[in-house]
Deep mutational scan, measured.
Amino acid sequence: IRCIGVSNRDFVEGMSGGTWVDVVLEHGGCVTVMAQDKPTVDIELVTTTVSNMAEVRSYCYEASISDMASDSRCPTQGEAYLDKQSDTQYVCKRTLVDRGWGNGCGLFGKGSLVTCAKFTCSKKMTGKSIQPENLEYRIMLSVHGSQHSGMIVNDTGYETDENRAKVEVTPNSPRAEATLGGFGSLGLDCEPRTGLDFSDLYYLTMNNKHWLVHKEWFHDIPLPWHAGADTGTPHWNNKEALVEFKDAHAKRQTVVVLGSQEGAVHTALAGALEAEMDGAKGKLFSGHLKCRLKMDKLRLKGVSYSLCTAAFTFTKVPAETLHGTVTVEVQYAGTDGPCKIPVQMAVDMQTLTPVGRLITANPVITESTENSKMMLELDPPFGDSYIVIGVGDKKITHHWHRSGSTIGKAFEATVRGAKRMAVLGDTAWDFGSVGGVFNSLGKGIHQIFGAAFKSLFGGMSWFSQILIGTLLVWLGLNTKNGSISLTCLALGGVMIFLSTAVSA
């Protein structure tokens, strides 16, 4: 259960009878995928790494000078000259100064003066180019299975845990398959586009800190620079940016070097996208990844198990997540596992009318040892309800109150669905055939309105939902006002479609 501690969480529900669903994975976010007769899966884009970055340009932001020398000439005696002028490691300046009897010249006039100092770069920052084909995306998957609280967001041991898996995709191999043991396998067909235009970005490294910066900004930095990788004795261009020549006297000129420019660069980098280094690879934390999940090989585990009949206890007080759902960790005293956990939410304890829904599909106890633990997640209705676990006299209950409203949740879900469709863009549509167009249209309606429909009408039977949709269509056909007619027709059509397409 990876997503319960992530604030940016998206719930995606598969269409009834569908074998695939489109998701948008982004750094700092987590996606929970639910479908009829399929286990619930949490998917998170953990890291995006980039390798084989080529150094484009380096800037010196802290330097020192040494070996200063000057040469001067009297008027009419030609130009002052130093051998160091031809050495690229030196920074030199030529000027004219007033000369006369007082400073060793027989004539009054302008004399030539040249001053040089050896330039040494102490600290530099480097910009590297990123090729999209060198990106690698690491995705962690977790099935809502027989897990306890100690396994949440624990990325170790996934090789031997059938509840978890790690997959890596690249532009050259965008397809992967996550093996989930008894739950089958989940196929991923990803489109490795981060949403960032790397043709316009460089990877900047300064003092063990890293950013993504725009090329134009990078090339306009007014500091000494050299092109390409460091060859040991780089040729620094624009050395004068960190060196200041003071007022010249008759035979000498003082040279000083400016202080470190790291603070000024940090100020200019305010708002830039931060990154990290992992050995020789860069780690990015921006952008998104679009994936199509193929769920035809994914299956529920323990459908044929019998119900657990022994007593359950709450190991922890049920807690609310950031998303309005409830996490419950229970301990089973029996030894008759594997068995299914009898769990439901009810409005009252007399009729036990089921409300809400299970995020953890078909929760089971897989071990036959005593005191096995299991964590599950529920989506309670707004208002008061009861969490009921167990059967008969051994069942345990917990009162729950959820604040908020169904309308607010439906609106929030619609906005999130619209954002998801905007990110998917043209990849969500198939114009290759008439059937493809209608299929894409259905998927689009489901992406945007599916979660809201589930919130508003999830407790009704599909037949009642179709009746309401048919009534809206009838009202649309018999209303003389054009805008009201079109609105009723659209709402009725969407409702009829979703009542037959969205899983219960």
Rank of each mutant, 00 (worst) to 15 (best):
V12K: 05
G14E: 09
G14I: 06
M15C: 04
S16R: 07
G18T: 00
W20A: 02
V24F: 08
L25R: 02
E26W: 11
G29Y: 12
C30E: 08
P39I: 07
V41G: 00
I43K: 10
T47Q: 02
T47R: 13
T49K: 08
V56W: 08
S58Y: 04
Y59V: 04
Y61G: 04
E62R: 01
S64L: 14
S64T: 11
I65L: 15
S66P: 09
M68Y: 01
D71S: 07
D71H: 09
T76W: 10
L82H: 14
Q85C: 12
D87N: 14
V91R: 00
C92N: 09
K93F: 10
R94A: 14
T95F: 05
T95C: 11
V97Y: 05
W101P: 02
G102Y: 06
G102L: 01
C105H: 05
C105I: 05
K110E: 11
L113W: 07
T115R: 09
A117Y: 03
F119Y: 12
S122M: 08
K123V: 01
T126W: 08
G127S: 01
G127P: 00
E133H: 05
N134D: 12
L135H: 02
M140C: 00
V143L: 14
V143N: 08
H148W: 09
S149W: 15
S149A: 03
S149D: 13
G150F: 01
M151G: 15
M151T: 07
I152H: 12
N154K: 11
T156K: 15
Y158S: 13
Y158F: 07
D161P: 04
E162L: 10
R164V: 12
R164W: 04
A165S: 15
K166S: 15
K166I: 08
V167Q: 05
V167E: 04
P171N: 10
P171R: 00
P174Y: 09
G181E: 15
G181T: 05
F183G: 04
L188C: 06
D189N: 13
P192W: 07
R193S: 10
G195A: 15
D197P: 01
L201D: 00
Y202V: 15
Y203S: 07
M206A: 03
N207V: 15
K209H: 05
W211K: 08
H214E: 09
W217A: 04
H219C: 03
H219N: 11
D220V: 06
D220N: 14
P222K: 09
L223K: 09
W225N: 10
A227Y: 03
G228F: 15
D230Q: 01
T231D: 13
P234R: 09
P234C: 01
W236D: 05
W236K: 05
N237G: 00
V243S: 00
E244D: 12
D247E: 14
H249D: 07
A250L: 02
K251N: 00
R252D: 06
T254F: 12
L258Y: 09
L258P: 10
E262H: 09
V265I: 15
V265Y: 11
A268N: 11
A268P: 11
A272L: 06
L273Q: 13
L273F: 13
L273D: 08
E274R: 02
A275N: 02
A280I: 01
A280H: 15
K281H: 03
G282M: 12
S286T: 12
S286F: 11
S286N: 02
G287K: 00
H288Y: 11
H288I: 08
L289I: 15
M295N: 11
R299Y: 06
K301R: 15
V303P: 00
S304R: 00
Y305D: 05
T309Y: 04
A310F: 00
F314H: 01
T315N: 12
T315W: 00
A319H: 02
E320D: 03
T321C: 11
L322F: 14
H323W: 13
G324I: 07
T325V: 06
V326N: 03
V328M: 13
V328F: 05
A333C: 10
G334H: 15
P338N: 06
I341D: 10
V343A: 15
V343Q: 05
Q344H: 14
Q344C: 09
Q344W: 03
A346V: 03
A346M: 15
A346L: 03
V347T: 11
T351F: 06
T353Y: 02
T353Q: 14
P354I: 05
R357L: 02
I359V: 14
I359P: 07
N362W: 08
P363C: 05
P363Q: 07
P363L: 11
P363M: 10
T366M: 14
E367C: 12
S368M: 07
E370I: 04
E370P: 10
N371C: 02
K373E: 13
M374K: 03
E377P: 02
E377W: 06
D379E: 05
D379C: 03
I387T: 10
I389L: 13
V391L: 14
V391A: 05
H398S: 00
H399A: 00
H399K: 02
H399F: 00
W400Y: 12
T406P: 02
I407Q: 04
E412P: 07
V415H: 10
K419G: 00
K419C: 12
M421F: 13
G425N: 06
G425W: 01
G425P: 03
D426H: 15
A428S: 11
W429D: 06
V434F: 15
G435M: 13
G436L: 00
V437L: 15
V437E: 03
V437P: 00
F438G: 00
L441G: 01
F449H: 12
F449S: 10
G450A: 06
K454P: 09
S455F: 12
L456Q: 10
G459K: 13
G459A: 10
S461G: 12
S464A: 08
S464R: 11
S464P: 10
G469D: 11
L471N: 12
L471P: 11
G476T: 03
T479S: 15
K480T: 15
N481F: 06
G482M: 13
S483L: 05
S485P: 09
L489M: 14
A490C: 11
A490N: 12
L491H: 12
G493R: 08
V494T: 10
F497L: 05
L498T: 03
S499V: 03
V502Q: 12
A504T: 13
A504N: 13
